[in-house]
């Protein structure tokens, strides 16, 4: 155990010695404090601890619930959707990218791999060190957000802590691929570039699925007299004259293909959405989630959704997204670990 803890401590020291570590910590704190600086009272929203104010009459618009919705929307769209999902993870990936290639350099391998701990222990310690780094970063950030909710809205919203495991899992998905590349190529730059490419492809497939699903749903509504598909922008206004029919089977088949492709990729957006579904607003979880969160799940359970889509979305559960992502990370790390233990250094 002592060698493992020694390796863990050294990994942490290594990260701490990098400028990017402190840049990431600093930016994290800055974003969290900016969120903390947003305040509400009955007549206005204030920013930067009251330095700037926008007049807004909350009393006539539902009062505190609207404030809570507004604050949570800022959190989900900007803080979680922008900072936690992208920038913080990119910074964490860059910070941790050199850990494995560095450990395999001739000079440092002589120090690390010729002593009592096995190579597998070294591998696991380095991996744990990286995850610990991200845990510290995200944990600190979420604690400030948690305090912000209490301070600004007067509620202890423990549901924000769901973002810690969600971000860790998204990071692990991408990092597992990065570790494999790092072990294979021993090149920091190659592993960063190809990981970003994987992320891009994965996001692209995600987007394509959403796009096709939306197109399929639109294809289900036709103009009652003519039987023509109603254009998207007219759906809202022509609802009374439309009827629901079976959707376009071609789109359905495309969605099916995309979902098969998607099953091999890490599911970053669905994982972050699963944290969003857990966010509690006025005592209910998932009110603001893009698919309705618990509400949508309830409808699904009651068989209210379209049958064909229902079959396709049956695989969209949180369990499926997390499960397949964990399998992806496990496979990547198993190959990387195996190579790490066998490679000549």
């Amino acid at each position: 155990m002592k060698p493992f803890l020694t390796l863990l401590l050294e990994s942490y020291r290594g990260l701490k010695s990098e400028t990017i570590f402190w840049v990431t910590v600093g930016l994290s704190l800055l974003v969290a404090v900016l969120f903390l600086s947003i305040g509400f009272d009955e007549n206005e929203i204030s920013f930067f601890f009251g330095a700037t104010n926008i007049e807004f009459d909350f009393s006539g618009r539902g009062g505190r619930l609207v404030q809570e919705i507004g604050y949570i929307m800022i959190f989900t769209n900007l803080i979680a959707g922008g900072w936690l999902t992208f920038i913080a993870i990119i910074l964490a990936l860059i910070s941790c990218a050199s850990i494995f290639p560095d450990a395999m350099k001739e000079g440092s391998a002589g120090m690390l791999m010729t002593k009592a701990p096995s190579r597998l222990q070294v591998f696991l310690a380095k991996l744990t060190g990286s995850l610990f780094f991200v845990f510290i970063q995200v944990g600190l950030f979420v604690v400030i957000v948690f305090v912000a909710f209490r301070w600004r809205l007067g509620v202890w919203n423990f549901s924000v802590f769901w973002y810690v495991p969600a971000v860790l899992l998204v990071f692990l998905n991408l990092y597992s691929f990065m570790v494999l590349l790092g072990v294979l190529t021993r090149s920091v730059m190659t592993s960063i570039m190809l990981t970003m490419l994987l992320w891009g492809i994965s996001a692209g497939v995600d987007w394509a699925i959403t796009y096709h699903e939306s197109a399929y749903q639109l294809s289900q509504y036709v103009d009652a007299p003519t039987g023509e598909i109603v254009p998207e922008e007219e759906v809202e206004f022509r609802m009374p004259e439309m009827e629901k029919v079976e959707g376009d089977p071609q789109i359905l088949s495309q969605i099916g293909t995309l979902k098969i492709v998607h099953s091999f990729f890490p599911k970053n957006s669905p994982i972050m959405e699963s944290a969003e579904k857990k966010l509690v607003l006025d005592g209910m979880a998932g009110m603001l989630a893009s698919d309705g969160g618990d509400v949508s799940q309830k409808l699904e359970d009651e068989g209210e959704l379209d049958d064909a889509m229902g079959k396709l979305t049956a695989n969209d559960s949180t369990f499926y997204s997390i499960g397949t992502s964990c399998i992806f990370a496990f496979v990547m790390l198993s190959i990387a670990g195996w190579l790490f233990c066998r490679k000549d250094l």
């Binding site: 002592k2 060698p3 050294e10 010695s17 001739e106 000079g107 002589g110």
Partner: peptide, 26 residues
């Protein structure tokens, strides 16, 4: 072992390098 082209973690002090090796060697 004193490997050829040794590269110790540059952020460690000389003392910490020895303590690090001691930790690894249990």
């Amino acid at each position: 072992l004193l490997p050829e082209h040794t590269q110790f973690p540059p952020y460690l002090t000389g003392r910490q390098v020895i303590e690090f090796a001691a930790g690894l060697q249990n």
